[in-house]
């Protein structure tokens, strides 16, 4: 008998995460891949890998996408739900911890705080100007110190006297770290100092004026870093929870939303199937000269056939119907 699953994809700047959930909304299969700057290839590869893991008897009933590449992924897959990552994270967290009141989320390029009250989003903030407190900065520093990122947290835990590092700006933080390293501080103390600096920056930048109440969930790839977790607990003075699927919570939320969408609206899925993913997808940018706005329009082609445009303000390209898309090819 065919087993039905719902697919959720979170296309982030650093990682692309995929999950499959079953009829009950339980996570069955998950995948965490590096986006490596090529979201189209990663989505194709990831979806095929995930469905392979699900076995022959699996069928995808619906798909949802989220993350900064959500629109692109939605076109490739024919997704039923395209949702922002804040809502997706909140939905997933609420599913696992119905009484959650604070969600800390640190991903590759951005960090967010989401406050939940009575099961709905009450307030949120996203980092505005600097990526100092995010995963890609940690990655970079780990590479510079030649520590595998997986062991980064362990180093922080072994520190005896963490050094103080400026956390407001990635450039200041790095020069502070180099200064401390050249004066002879050990790597453990520097790593721990960096973790504390990032947490301080996060709380100052995002959580100012916001009431952080328990239970607190920590999601996103950076939650794997035990050094950051401990620094949060030290700074807040309360313990924080790491959900089992902390690294794919966005994708999990997207899958749950896709399931909900189909169930509530009782409609057919728009999922294009796996065969569609074998097509050759190309992305092209064109400068529209139709008026003085000079929009940068993105054109997505599947086997050289345009399947979507966006980036225009007037709708000249974005509102094209299927027939008109074919026309624009000629």
């Amino acid at each position: 008998m065919l087993k039905e699953y719902y697919l959720g994809i979170d296309v982030g700047s650093v990682s692309t995460n995929l999950v499959a959930i079953d009829q009950n909304g339980t996570l069955v299969e998950k995948l965490y891949l590096r986006t490596s700057g090529r979201p189209v290839d990663t989505v194709k590869k990831g979806t095929l890998m995930l469905t392979e893991n699900l076995g022959d008897q699996a069928s995808i009933k619906a798909a949802g996408t989220t993350g900064s590449g959500r629109k692109l992924a939605a076109v490739l897959l024919g997704a039923d739900v395209v949702k922002n990552e804040i809502t997706a994270h909140a939905v997933a967290a609420r599913r696992l911890y119905p009484n959650v009141r604070t969600i800390l989320e640190i991903g590759g390029q951005d960090s967010k705080i989401i406050l939940m009250r009575n099961g709905i989003v009450y307030d949120f903030a996203m980092n505005t100007v600097c990526a100092a407190g995010t995963g890609s900065f940690l990655d970079r520093q780990a590479a510079r110190l030649e520590i595998p990122i997986e062991e980064f947290g362990g180093y922080a835990l072994r520190a005896k006297t963490p050094v103080r590092i400026a956390g407001r700006c990635a450039v200041f933080a790095e020069s502070d770290m180099i200064h401390k390293q050249q004066t002879g501080h050990c790597t453990e103390d520097i790593v721990a100092g960096l973790c504390e600096a990032l947490v301080r920056n996060y709380l100052n930048n995002l959580a100012k004026g916001k009431e952080i109440l328990q239970p607190i969930l920590f999601q996103g790839g950076v939650a794997a870093n035990i050094g950051i977790v401990k620094a949060f607990e030290k700074e807040l003075g309360i313990s924080i929870l790491i959900p089992e699927y902390y690294d794919v919570m966005g994708a999990y939320g997207a899958a749950l939303l896709a399931k909900e969408e189909l169930e509530i609206n009782q409609r057919e899925t728009g999922f294009l199937g796996l065969g569609n993913l074998k097509h050759e997808f190309t992305v092209q940018s064109i400068d529209c000269a139709g008026c003085s706005n000079l929009c940068e329009v993105i054109k997505i082609c599947s086997n050289n056939m345009p399947i979507a445009y966006w980036g225009d303000r007037c709708g000249k390209w974005g509102d094209l119907t299927a027939n008109e898309l074919v026309q624009s090819y000629k």
Binding site: N84, T87, I120, Y122, M126
Partner: peptide, 10 residues
Amino acid sequence: LTRIEAFLDM
């Protein structure tokens, strides 16, 4: 867009 969409969802 993420912020605007999340705000509207909220």
